[in-house]
Write a protein that binds this DNA or RNA. Structure first.
Lengths: 237, 237, 237, 237
DNA sequence: GATGAATGAGAATTCATTCAT
DNA sequence: AATGAATGAATTCTCATTCAT
């Protein structure tokens, strides 16, 4: 398991009413809400638009969730769990090499983002949510969970001597995190893939797996051996 | 010059009225506006707070700028120009080594963020502004300018054989950009430095130059030689 | 019997369904409703909180009562009957002196308020309920009942020459009513007794009977002989 | 001066905008707001109704006051100052006798209530405002001011031997306060005067001054010599 | 008889923008 | 040029009541 989200989940529970809803309606609501928070940051997201999309009364939102914040927390938690589980399940257990392990994690994360653009965009937005009171907690937890996962990876890599032992672990973990999170932007550009459009139009278009791997190879290469040419930039003497 | 911002500036021009203002008043206005957008994202920033701070009428904003968006664009452009000029002016012309050139750019960028927290925060916010209709253009231009600068650097590095010649330039430029932009977060954490507080309290507190360099060394090292240990992670064959 | 409440009760009758309820359920419902209206004025009281406490469906309230107003009316009537019965039952039948009779009525009323804080608070709230359409009727009836009781007392007092015969009976009754009703506030302050807390925590804490009597003595004294000093304020010649 | 309200007033100030309004508009707004709060308690009063009456936009209220609470505070303060000033100005300075002084205070208070029914009703409502967070402060201040005034009166009365020296001052002050505040209800009934209607229809109808004095004589008499008849209720031995 | 989801009107509040002065 | 009052649509949230199951 990559991360334990149970505490957060407990606090962000929908009401029982929500779970009593016919599956179809519940999903229409979640879909609309995911759309909204995938397309707008927390503050800009509008409950009014959600209910208009679903075709229900304003008050119904409050039958399902305690308020906008709880709805948001639930969605983020849901998305995070789904994505982490997806990655977890997709990772073979026996990948020995650090860089390969990292590359695969990112790879499956990217596949997730392409195939579930709503969830992916929501998480992406949450990552960059300004740390205001309303969303601080969940954004911080999301970030902490990701960092913790990477830290475990890095520390194992150092123990196995796959990584240099003179690394500033904090910085390396941070750098990996940033490259992972932001990769999505690069892929969007390179593949001419608009996550925004994908959110609006439902499940994403197929992606070129080879091209994706090519990018990840670059990333892994950069991390493995750096950018320096053979001479004289490389300090090998 | 690092970047030509004239096109953007033309579109985000204040009215002639604004330039007819006494310098002192113009600057008080800009200061207040910078404060506001440094502390809040575009949507949360309030014209009302700005005019209250400056002590002018609400209508005056519309004598100076076409609206909130134009004001924002102008401020971002201004901040970008100032930061790029600062870095430009701080860089010695004769730094041959790619990694050193990059390291110095980032170093002076960081110094700028610490010493001019308002401008730094504004740019940082703009970078992560959700790409909605209102702010899309300026954020994209800001990003494009930075990427272009880095691209020039990288391409020169390849020409000089300081960098490997099998690099995916687009990806490398992107990675450098992400590491550069986000470094601010890492420094904030490591140094316990709150940019938000610095904005509120005026010019930032002194930073530990040695510690800053230590972080930048890690970054440069990562980029230069990668993370791999001597054996067997490194593919040297 | 102090007062006949049957007319009011008829109008505020619960549905037959309510009386078919198992006694235990009926009482849990009434308890929760009393709590709610003891702690909040009519408008602020929430049916949602009541049903949440009892653990029944919202619709059930409308199986028992025609609506919020009817429920409220019934509760007030119930509380009034209970309080009046309590006072009635506590009063010895042979108290000749008017002031003593009055003092005892107030005394037992106070004891009731302390020992049954929910009912006492509900009645108190009802007394000061703004006379809007919704609650006018029941508040007026409550008041009328109390005034009628006091009128009987006063008229007897005059007949027995215990009271001056030049009194404006209407005014005296009114004054006695106000002093009676509001005494609760004074006792709360003097004894540091929070009726609100008592409602929340169930049956009230023990009160200092001697101190209570001391206050009532002051009240009775004021009513009996007035406030005037021996000379020259007192018109006795 | 009966009471110093300046502190409260400072905190409940309208915005400068409000004072810049043409007198006529300002007064139409205040009239409508007074109407609303005279007819409804704080919670039930609706800003929507006020703006509908005045014929302005909802947002305008917030140009004039920081919010509902501030508007309410201002109105209560205004009403209290007006009423206290009115009473102050109407009281002759040389009334030696305690009972006469009290009677006159109440008399002018009553006259005020009849002639300015909106202000009177607002204050009356504020007095019985449930001590919830929103209105606690102003209601408590209002009450405290009145009690303090009465306490001064009573203590002077005792010093002058106009009042018995064995009185429980706290209780007496409390009783006087209750009789004063509630007198309004009695007068309404006796004179068939509906303060509610008076609020709606503007300035009140003329009142029978002789009848009013008759009631106040009863009150003063009750307080001066009590209710007891000559024998044997009176404890004279 | 009981349920409880759905309703929708109404609450306070915010704020960029307009425009008559 | 500057003002600043007015706007009104949009925001989140509450809650008594209804009605199909």
């Amino acid at each position: 398991m990559v991360q334990d989200w149970s505490v957060t989940r407990a606090e962000a529970m929908p009401t029982p009413t929500f779970f009593n809803l016919p599956r179809e309606k519940r999903e229409r609501f979640l879909d609309a809400a995911l759309d909204e928070f995938a397309l707008h940051d927390y503050r800009s997201a509008s409950l009014g638009r959600i209910v208009a999309t679903v075709g229900i009364a304003k008050g119904s939102v409050y039958q399902y969730f305690a308020g906008k914040q709880e709805l948001y927390l639930y969605l983020v938690t849901l998305a995070a769990e789904t994505k982490f589980s997806f990655i977890d399940a997709s990772l073979p257990g026996d990948v020995a090499d650090f860089f390969e392990r990292f590359r695969l994690s990112v790879y499956h994360g990217a596949r997730f983002d392409f195939s579930r653009p709503r969830l992916g965009s929501l998480l992406y937005n949450a990552t960059y949510e300004p740390s205001g009171a309303a969303t601080l907690e969940v954004a911080a937890q999301l970030r902490a969970a990701s960092l913790q996962y990477l830290r475990t990876l890095v520390e194992a890599g150092i123990r196995n001597a796959e990584l240099r032992d003179d690394l500033d672990v904090d910085y390396v973990v941070f750098a990996l995190y940033q490259l992972t999170v932001s990769l999505r932007d690069f892929l969007g550009e390179r593949f001419g893939f608009s996550f925004k459009d994908a959110v609006r139009e439902g499940s994403g278009s197929p992606i070129d797996d080879a091209a994706l791997h090519a990018v990840l190879d670059q990333m892994a290469d950069l991390l493995r051996q750096g950018l320096a040419g053979p001479e004289p930039g490389r300090d090998v003497t």
